[in-house]
Design a protein around this nucleic acid. Structure first.
Length: 395
DNA sequence: CGCTTTTGACCTGCGC
DNA sequence: GCGCAGGTCAAAAGCG
């Protein structure tokens, strides 16, 4: 990591110097152009204009440079990590970060629309692509053909998947024209009471509270996967981010899959861990055992999913800035208002407990660090990683 | 009549 | 190049 950091610093300084040289060249060219086109201005006027132009260039340069710095992986993860901090208000760089992630997705929805991306930020292109590809899979015990997540879906296809007698259904979000979000629903071959729903994409429209939960979870997981996919990223932030944004809402397990073709986070919300499930997880996936939350953490749900993701909604809405809570209430009053309040309080209490978060971070990072060599850490760095993770949590 | 579901055809990526 | 599997399209059918 240090070597990687040094390398990135070197690259940054080189790019910065290149930029400075280019900027100076541009200023010189503009001065030259001014000299050739200014016919009736006095010399003093020219000097003033030149100074003003240089000042503009300086300001613009600083802006561009800051934008470039914002692309730094460490900063990206820093912001993502901070995003999960309860006290953080959804403003400033936080909003900018989330918005930067979300807006290209929205822009790409319209036909023939070119995403409003700064050409000097090529990383954003890959960011968009990764965010599109990132998936969040949810496993839940349900007899219903499809879990109710608050969104309106239209089925557009069904296929028989290999090795599974149950067909896989494909749904598309119909809450807004051109919404790119899709999901796949399939029953587990081993246990047909388990329903696996895989979400892909980010909504480009306001969402009702129940749908906000899933959307936020998807976005959070996608952000985490994005940071993990970057070679120089500090992958150890990812489990923290995951833990603080997603895991508290799962009952016992989350699985991160970096296997091709798409990075996937699997939230196992089946209350009783099935040994078959554990065996079925391929070695390329990273299991994160998670203690079952207190009994009152989920308050007697008649249908599990809306309540479970209601927690995600309440928590995430405090920091994500993806959708304002005002919009939520305007769209549709919460159907589980009492539960949301209880869950919100419980979530806040848990996430505000530094011991809990630190222990959680240590547990996850120790597992992740020992079984995920491609994420940028060695198996022997558990101690340092835990410390670093804790420091991030404290931030 | 408008929307959703069904379902076979088609497209695409990947492994051999 | 070929076959397979996953994913999507779109016309037909179903439904309220």
């Amino acid at each position: 990591m240090n070597a990687e950091n040094q390398r990135l610093r070197g690259m940054l300084s080189q790019v910065s110097s290149n930029y400075s040289a280019l900027q100076m060249h541009l200023v010189a060219l503009m001065q030259q152009q001014q000299n050739s086109t200014a016919h009736d201005g006095t010399q003093e006027r020219e000097i003033l204009d030149r100074k003003s132009q240089e000042k503009k260039e300086e300001n613009g340069g600083a802006t561009v440079q800051r934008q470039f710095l914002d692309l730094g992986p460490a900063r990206e993860i820093d912001d993502l990590s901070n995003t999960s901090t309860e006290e953080r208000t959804p403003s400033g760089s936080l909003t900018k970060k989330i918005g930067r992630v979300e807006s290209p997705e929205s822009d790409s929805c319209g036909p023939n629309k070119i995403p409003k991306l700064n050409p000097s930020k090529p990383v954003d292109q890959s960011t968009v692509a990764t965010m599109k590809k990132a998936r969040v899979s949810v496993r839940v015990r349900s007899e219903a053909p499809m879990i109710s997540d608050g969104c309106q879906w239209r089925k557009y296809g069904q296929k028989m998947a290999k090795g599974n007698p149950c067909p896989r259904a494909y749904y598309r979000c119909t809450m807004a024209v051109g919404c790119p979000v899709r999901k796949q629903v399939q029953r587990c071959a081993e246990d047909k009471t388990i329903l696996t729903t895989t979400y892909e994409g980010t909504h480009n429209h306001p969402l009702p509270p129940a749908a906000m939960a899933m959307a936020s979870t998807t976005s959070a997981a996608a952000s985490m996967l994005l940071s993990g996919s970057m070679p120089s990223a500090d992958g150890l932030m990812n489990p923290n981010f995951l833990a603080r944004t997603i895991l508290p809402y799962s009952s016992n397990m989350a699985t991160i899959s970096a296997s091709a073709p798409f990075p996937t986070v699997t939230l196992d919300l089946t209350h009783s861990p099935n040994p078959l499930q554990l065996q079925r997880v391929p070695p390329t996936q990273y299991q994160v055992p998670f203690p079952v939350p207190p009994q009152n953490f989920v308050s007697a749900p008649t249908s599990q999913m809306p309540q479970v993701f209601g927690q995600a909604m309440v928590n995430q809405s405090k920091f994500s800035g993806l959708q304002s809570s005002q919009n939520i209430e305007q769209i549709q009053p919460p159907q589980h208002h009492h539960s949301f309040a209880d869950i919100s309080a419980a979530t806040a209490a848990i996430t505000a407990d530094p011991n809990f978060t630190a222990a959680l971070a240590a547990a996850i990072t120790s597992i992740m660090g020992g079984s995920r060599p491609d994420i940028g850490d060695t198996p022997n760095n558990n101690t340092s990683t835990s410390n670093k993770s804790s420091s991030f949590l404290e931030n």
